[in-house]
Design a binder for these strands. Structure first.
Lengths: 77, 77
DNA sequence: TTAAATGTTGCCATATACGGCATTAAGGTT
DNA sequence: AACCTTAATGCCGTATATGGCAACATTTAA
């Protein structure tokens, strides 16, 4: 899978869970430990950036889900 | 959980799977799509760097496991 | 219409991930 | 001893993730 596809699908997962929880991007950013800007939420959800595992960890915390829930399943080439 | 702890545990998971598969760091780096240096394998496994999701994806591919197998389970604060 | 809420995008600065190479060290083998 | 394999580490560039703010578009509500 291409990089852009991995990022796009990852962002989609975050967006979906965020909306299921009824959070806005602002809500989510505010819940994330440390400094976090809504700009980055937008960039990650839209797949425009390649988040680090620690960033995803903080997002998982804020969404109250496991990291496994935020990553894509497929490992096909 | 602290950032350093997240990175340390993530690296440990990768190391464990790599050794279970009987790969050296050099083997793993060679299997990873695109350029990948053993330097980076070492840094990630030892928790000295904060890998991006795409890097973890490529490692998962090379190890023939799912991304979920490489990330930590806990989401405690 | 005006205003507020929500999300996107552009820009800038700083920190750092990664590619890459060389060195170092430890362990095993001869 | 010398040699090889394996991994860790230091250093240097380049690319980019992130923090942060402002501008903009869209939607909804007043």
């Amino acid at each position: 899978m291409e990089k852009s596809e991995v990022l796009r699908l990852t962002g989609k997962k975050i967006l979906k869970i965020r909306e299921q929880k009824g959070f806005t991007q602002l809500d989510l950013a505010a819940r994330i430990q440390g400094d976090f800007d809504t700009t980055n939420v937008s960039r990650i959800e839209s797949g425009r950036t390649n988040p680090t595992i620690y960033t995803l960890y903080r997002i998982a915390e804020a969404l109250e889900v496991s990291l496994a829930d935020l990553v894509i399943n497929e490992v096909k080439d």
